[in-house]
Design a protein around this nucleic acid. Sequence first.
DNA 1: TTAGATGCAAACTTTTTGCAACAAA
DNA 2: TTTGTTGCAAAAAGTTTGCATCTAA
Lengths: 138, 138
Amino acid sequence: MLELTQILKEHKLKVTPQRLCIFKILCETTEHPTAEAIYNSLKNEFPTMSLATVYKTLDTLVQHGLIQQLNVGEDSFRYDATVLSHPHVKCVKCGQVMDIHNMQTIKGLREEVKALTHFDLMHEQLYFFGTCPTCQKN
Amino acid sequence: MLELTQILKEHKLKVTPQRLCIFKILCETTEHPTAEAIYNSLKNEFPTMSLATVYKTLDTLVQHGLIQQLNVGEDSFRYDATVLSHPHVKCVKCGQVMDIHNMQTIKGLREEVKALTHFDLMHEQLYFFGTCPTCQKN
DNA sequence: TTAGATGCAAACTTTTTGCAACAAA
DNA sequence: TTTGTTGCAAAAAGTTTGCATCTAA
């Protein structure tokens, strides 16, 4: 928590309990929650917290590069505290979204895209869809 | 147009002027339009066309695997008549979304994801972001 | 003290739904 | 004739905005 306070200060953001708590939730979960999900897991601790504040805070954190916004083909956005670009895989049965880290083949992929399109690439969003090991058994 | 009629019939879909026209627009463009954009380009020719019909038609076509829905991190969905899975690249300056075909490195990517996650993979959505050659010059 | 954040309600955007009239097969 | 489609309006869902109050610095 002290560390998160520090990070917010470094970005010249006022350190409020609401911000800290939203940021903390994102850092501690691997579930890539939506704004609504974050709001629901917070409103016990912060009964006066409003969904608008969640959205404003998430927007602020995205603007400062502290979290990233995901778009997994759903009707709402998800958020991820891991800013380093990494692919995600979503289970079409249970709906969970998982990170995939340490991919070796991405570098080659980027190079091929660059060669084919002549774009000056900045970042990418890679989403895979299928059935997770648990759902495969059922 | 005859060909599109044929395709709709093969899927046991009633062939209406609205459906044909929406399907045709998607087949002829490379711009990955949104529902709204399709509606706008149609309402001169079909003054009674409603946006709800566009959405219903797009949904029907997606369900039958005749088009695919894209989610390029925007607030609305785009649609693509090329069903074969292929990556897309979006210019962060001018906003255009382009197809990338004939990627050689995707197969290796899929295999690595499969090995790392043990998911039974079905499809993927790969989006790259950067500056297009035209915008680089400006 | 002051710049900026919160929280409520209202607005806005995109997409979906209900249903009566209509058109393709 | 029957089954499914269209088109309107209303609703739903997600997100943003305006503004008065409040709070961190």
